[in-house]
Design a protein around this nucleic acid. Structure first.
Length: 555
RNA sequence: GCGGGUGUGGUCUAGCGGUAUGACGCUGGCUUCCCAAGCCAGUUGCCCGGGUUCGAAUCCCGGCACCCGCACCA
């Protein structure tokens, strides 16, 4: 008798085995023994992954109207120093001199000393190990660098270019899909915890006073599953914001969008929940964060998406470290007049007195804060302090018109782990039945996600039927519809091969085709067939595609 | 990183000191008018390295990978 656990383990093994057998996913570098934490996507897996990413683009690039960029994965030290990753992503490691074992220092600390739990001796050999992959740029004059732990920093460092690109209007969103790297201590759980992984991130820049979304009104009654007090509660995003469960409209909106996206990929909506991070588990940059967790029969609830309010943390830090102008500007509705003290330099006096240095001195004087002037003021020029006589300047009170306000935008960040979503899409859509006593597998992938949209078969391998089938296959591919031609084995076997990789339709050319130019289209989920004229095939599949897109993006 | 378990064709598996079994798959052929049919032929393997032995898939040591538990998880 099988226990529940055994059942799910069996199912997991079957999915992994199927994935490997059918070119979806397999451990990398296997011919050299493999390396933990690295997986390769095969011919079909690559398409599925790309399809997931493209559905994601449907939501963020098309529906939200965000802009997409593509920045380097190798990132200079300074960037990640500023972002906090150099310091926050570091563990103090203790290495025992007698047994040579490594420990995370804080685990073995006793009264300020580090004691080896094996040898029971004090360890003095301590070093910091960073969980980012380190590398160097250049030869000789090399610069320290890291493989990026998240794509977000590439967006923050481009902020001033992007802000100009959108013609200085907030809010605006920037997306990036790419690889991230984390040198995990113990990668486990297959594709769930990788050392190199794909993520899709959106950084949406807001006026901190106005974290609203223009479409919120439209969707405020739609419900999402919140995990509160150890139970899942479906609550409308509008109510969640009103009751203060979710901090602002923007967060709530992107949680709803995440919910829709995951289901569009074929994730079972009953196996999604949003869980808020406790204060002590928040990342160093986040004020509020909600994870979308997806339930796996194999692994339990797995964090697949993080939707965080990063506030002004990153931009502020990059302003501080780089000196760049990463501010946004807000035009005030009514320009205000304010009185300010200004220093007015008398060049008539200053010029003759300091000659060629006068210009530099004037610039320095004008930068000083008049309210902090002391009796005698000095400026430093070329390392020398120069006293400035009082009659060279005077302090004036002037009225200034202020029509803009500078501020650092806040960032809401939905961040998606593509590989984790990929795995759950496989798990949630893997179905087993029996046909004639034999195990029968169907991957019920949504149309947009399926790597092959249709199989094309001659019913029997009669050359007349084969030719027509090959022509259909060719025509479909000319129209960018992934089709798969197969004339080997019985028709049932060919359907089975397609079902196993989630192909939603199969076209069969039979002897009636010779008479009336029609073929059958067989539906994966119902196995029902309809007859359709060959001429209508391309529009049938194009129709399925736009219908699917319309259904998921029409909100 | 710690402790325990496991590692045989593409997949599942037998063998547990005499160089490998079976099934499925896959390829080709015959057959076949719609859901893994049948027949014939072919195809691919002992995780890696070292040791013990006349001889190692099998025993021992080391490595790697996977699984379970602990720890970790921006």
């Amino acid at each position: 008798m099988k226990t529940e656990d055994n059942m799910s383990k069996d199912k997991y093994d079957k999915i992994i085995s199927l994935a490997k057998r059918r070119g979806i996913l397999n451990p990398s570098f296997e011919i050299y023994g493999g390396v933990a934490g690295f997986y390769s996507y095969g011919p079909l897996g690559s398409i599925i992954k790309r399809n997931i990413e493209n559905v994601w683009r449907g939501f963020y690039l098309f529906r939200e109207g965000f802009i997409e960029i593509d920045t380097p994965t190798i990132t200079p030290y300074e960037v990640l120093k500023a972002s906090g990753h150099v310091d926050e992503f570091t563990d103090l490691t203790a290495i025992c001199d007698s047994c040579g074992r490594y420990f995370k220092a804080e685990d073995i600390e006793k009264d300020g000393k580090y004691i080896c739990p094996v040898c029971n001796r004090e360890i003095k050999n301590l070093k910091y190990t960073n969980l980012m992959f380190q590398t160097k740029i250049g030869v000789g004059d090399e610069r320290r660098a890291f493989l990026r732990p998240e794509t977000a920093q590439g967006i923050f460092t481009e902020f001033h270019n992007l802000y100009r690109f959108v013609r200085e209007k907030l809010p605006f969103g920037v997306i990036q899909i790419g690889r991230g790297y984390r040198n995990e201590i113990a990668p486990r759980q297959g594709v769930i915890r990788l050392r190199e992984f794909s993520m899709a991130e959106a950084e949406i820049f807001f006026d901190p006073e106005n974290k609203k979304h223009s479409r919120f009104e439209q969707v405020k009654d739609e419900k999402i599953p919140l995990f509160i007090d150890d139970k899942i509660e479906k609550i409308s995003v509008g109510a969640a914001v009103e009751k203060g469960i979710i901090g602002n409209e923007a967060l709530a909106y992107y949680m709803l969008l995440t919910y829709k996206f995951l289901m569009a990929c074929g994730i079972n909506g009953d196996k999604i929940r949003f869980r808020q991070h406790r204060k002590d588990e928040l990342a160093h940059y986040a004020r509020e964060c909600w994870d979308a967790e997806i339930y796996s029969d194999r692994f339990g609830w797995i964090e697949c998406v993080g939707i965080a309010d990063r506030t002004a943390y990153d931009l502020e830090s990059h302003i501080k470290h780089s000196g760049a102008d990463l501010y946004a500007i807000k035009r005030l509705e009514t320009p205000q007049e304010i009185e300010v003290e200004k220093i007015e330099v008398d060049m008539g006096k200053l010029g003759p007195l300091f000659k060629e240095k006068a210009r530099v001195i004037r610039e320095k004087l004008e930068k000083l804060d008049p309210s902090k002037f002391e009796e005698e003021i000095e400026v430093e020029v070329d390392g020398k302090k120069i006293k400035i006589p009082k009659d060279c300047y005077r302090i004036k009170r002037v009225k200034e018109k202020v029509s803009v306000e500078r501020f650092i935008p806040h960032v809401i960040e939905p961040s998606y782990g593509i590989d984790r979503i990929f795995f759950h899409v496989l798990e949630h859509n893997y179905m087993e039945t029996t046909k004639k006593g034999e195990e029968y597998r169907v991957l019920k992938l949504p149309y947009l996600i399926a790597p092959i949209k249709t199989g094309v078969f001659p019913l029997v391998s009669d050359e007349r039927l084969c030719k027509i089938a090959r022509d259909i296959h060719d025509t479909l591919r000319k129209n960018c519809i992934e089709s798969y031609y197969d004339e080997s084995g019985s028709i049932g076997r060919r359907y089975a091969r397609m079902d196993e990789i989630g192909t939603p339709y199969c076209i069969t050319v039979d002897f009636d085709t010779l008479e009336d130019n029609t073929v059958t289209i067989r539906d994966r989920d119902t196995t029902e067939q309809i007859r359709i004229n060959i001429e209508e095939l391309v529009s049938f599949f194009k129709g399925k595609e736009s219908e699917s897109l319309y259904n998921i993006l029409n909100y």
